[in-house]
């Protein structure tokens, strides 16, 4: 019972901090709230016995990607100019669209939300490093190698795009 309570508290906190990402005016606050959201999502992973993914989520998302965002944000030094304001109409449209999406997805899944009733306790070691490593290096070894090519492409692309063009001196 305490586990359910914990799940409800952590899930609500996840939704709350995700809302703060969208609603806060200052981009740096958004980044901080996004890091908090990722920590809460990692805690949900731990509740579901996915320990490896929880650690990967913290290291890669909160540790690397968000630091990259923060770095770019501080590099651009945007605090002089104000955030471009959004009109009330587009805000209203956004709320309407997101609410419609939420209710449609909930309505579509309403009859299949019986996971709790049908759940049979399965192997709790599914999310451990040993299992995932065995699977990653046997069945999914080709996508794993291809992802390294993707990383090299992304790295070269990032360097090429962000490089300052040569000044033409005449």
């Amino acid at each position: 019972m305490t586990l359910q309570l914990l799940a409800i508290i952590l899930g609500s906190l996840t939704i709350g901090s995700a809302l703060m990402v969208v609603l806060s005016k200052h981009p740096i606050r958004s980044v901080i709230y996004l890091v908090i959201t990722f920590f809460f999502i990692s805690s949900l992973y731990i509740l579901m016995n996915a320990e490896f993914l929880a650690i990967v989520n913290i290291i890669v998302y909160a540790g690397a990607i968000m630091v990259l965002f923060l770095f770019v944000l501080m590099l651009l030094n945007l605090n002089k100019q104000a955030e471009p304001t959004t009109s009330l109409f587009s805000k209203l449209t956004g709320v309407l669209a997101a609410g419609a999406l939420f209710s449609v997805l909930i309505a579509a899944l309403k009859d299949s939300l019986v996971l709790g009733k049908n759940y049979v306790p399965s192997n709790p070691n599914v999310g451990l490093v040993e299992n995932l490593g065995n699977l990653l290096f046997s069945k999914y070894v080709v996508p794993f190698e291809v992802s390294s090519i993707l990383f090299i492409a992304a790295m070269v692309g990032a360097v090429l795009l962000a490089k300052r063009e040569k000044q033409i001196i005449d």
Partner: peptide, 26 residues
Amino acid sequence: TIGSSLDFFVVVAIALFSIGCYGVLT
């Protein structure tokens, strides 16, 4: 006994997706 909370996690995932969608739109 986390099994009975799995439905709630699905709802949380849908809510997060909708919040992200709202952010992209506005």
